[in-house]
Amino acid sequence: MSDSGNWPLYEIFVRGKRGLNHVHVGSLHAADDQMALTHARDLYTRRNEGVSIWAVRSEHIAASTRDEKDPFFAPSADKVYRHPTFYDIPDDVPHI
């Protein structure tokens, strides 16, 4: 019980008052989902940072690896035509 190595790791995501999305803020140990939420509340929202919390077991996150870096991401570096920059934007179109 006193060995936190027995408690699984959770990744914590908080949605700020002004933010649109839940954003990763850190990780913590907890024995179960409910404890992860209370711990997250106490660790990551005590300075008025958030209005919503997601807690996800770290082992449930599928992550790309360093080995995949080149095949995953390098090919997009020279494909400038994928960026929508070849248009003239009319003056009366907002939010772009």
């Binding site: 908080v14 949605r15 700020g16 008052k17 002004r18 933010g19 300075r47 008025n48 940072e49």
Partner: peptide, 21 residues
């Protein structure tokens, strides 16, 4: 989340990772 919260400060001081309001 923290940077967006710091946006709320008029002086643009983003050092403080606390909420506003």
């Amino acid at each position: 989340v923290y940077l967006s919260l710091a946006d709320g400060h008029d002086d643009g001081d983003a050092r403080w990772a606390f909420g506003t309001g």
